[in-house]
Design a binder for these strands. Structure first.
Lengths: 101, 101
DNA sequence: CAGGATCCCGCGGGATACTG
DNA sequence: CAGTATCCCGCGGGATCCTG
């Protein structure tokens, strides 16, 4: 993707935010409730500590989450991602059941 | 991500569908209207023909899009992704403006 | 428990050239 | 135009060990 597309396309920006192996899963968890590092690690089962660290830091930098005494919570703008996650859940609940995995 | 999580978690399935560099952008285009190969290529600007081929084939296999005489269109279940894309656009329009890119 | 530091590997994906 | 075929490289991310 070109750089300039981020300025012009809202979906491109969201794509940059979400398009890696773990970010959606992390947000799925944090949208529900604040969680600590190891708690996230166990929920995500196979994520490495390194990757979890990297992804959390990135989300913090982007202003989507915040660390509050060893607990990661969504920020105000982060919580606005909720509707996206809801639609994802609705879709995933009905479709892709046999295909993926 | 573990395999078993796909059976149990709807969001994990959607994550598998969407979490790569190009799929969201392709769907962004196809949700709006059917498009041909090169048309998509120009819209996405920097995607390679190889990657576009691979991604389109994958979406076809997953039953999300269909090729209809050299034109790619969303299937019925593919069109259900619309609400996700809408929420993404709403979010991207208001947030991430300075951060990403 | 909550990470930081290294080391290393696979594969996602770009570049390029070719075909019906 | 709509791909297919190779070749190749970067980096996302796993494994492992170490620290406060």
């Amino acid at each position: 993707m070109k750089k300039t597309i981020y300025q012009s396309c809202p979906i491109a920006r969201v794509a940059m935010l979400l398009s890696d192996r773990w970010t959606m899963m992390i947000l799925r968890d944090l949208v529900r409730k604040p969680m600590r590092f190891n708690e996230l690690g166990e929920s995500l089962e196979t994520i490495s500590t390194r990757t979890l660290t990297v992804k959390l830091k990135r989300l913090e930098t982007l202003g989507v989450i915040r660390k509050k005494d060893a607990c990661y919570t969504m920020t105000a703008t982060g919580r606005k991602i909720g509707p996206i996650m809801n639609e994802m859940e609705k879709y995933g609940r009905k479709y892709l059941l046999k295909n993926v995995g």
